[in-house]
């Protein structure tokens, strides 16, 4: 029982037939080759698989592909424009917020959504926004700095 869905990934239109049980994570990684989307748990606990769905950071491992019909998806591959790092990516590099890098795509996307929201965040609010992301390498210190830097005008 395949279902045909259409959505955009990083601005590119995609139409394909998916199984009703397939997650967006599987479709993005295995069918479309967006391997920058990471899998750390597959059950919504770690945030590694975060993508932006209509601008909202979402765990793609617990989001069914069929729900993505008609949506705009942004993955980490869609963040750098014309090969130029975005402000958020730049900040993650500058502040040393990357170690093994497995949590990084998800964190860059959530931070990107925060920047796009145009809101101001206190340090506590930043922490709350990022609390769905585990990082075992950095103790979050430089990640917070990178996010603060991303949010600077």
């Amino acid at each position: 029982m395949l279902k045909k869905i259409s959505f955009t990934v990083n601005g590119k239109e995609v139409s394909l037939e998916v199984n009703p049980g397939e997650t967006l994570l599987e479709v993005l990684r295995k069918r479309l080759g967006y391997t920058g989307v990471k899998k750390g748990c597959a059950v919504g606990e770690c945030g590694a698989c975060t993508v932006l769905i209509d601008g909202t950071p979402t765990d793609s491992c617990i989001y069914l592909a069929v729900w993505a019909d008609g949506k705009e998806i942004i993955t980490i591959e869609g963040i750098a424009e014309d090969g130029k790092l975005s402000k958020v990516q730049e900040a993650f590099v500058e502040e040393g917020a990357v170690q093994c890098g497995f949590c990084t795509p998800g964190l860059v996307l959530t931070t990107t959504a925060m920047v796009q929201s145009g809101k101001k965040y206190t340090r506590e609010e930043i922490k709350r926004e990022l609390s769905g992301h585990f990082c075992r390498c950095t103790g979050y210190q430089n990640i917070i700095k990178a996010v603060e830097k991303s949010l600077e005008d």
């Binding site: 989307v37 980490i76 963040i79 990516q89 993650f92 590099v93 040393g96 990084t104 795509p105």
Partner: peptide, 10 residues
């Protein structure tokens, strides 16, 4: 880091 760009771009 020499691998930072590769890691922030996926």
């Amino acid at each position: 880091r020499v691998d930072a760009v590769a890691k922030v771009t996926g």
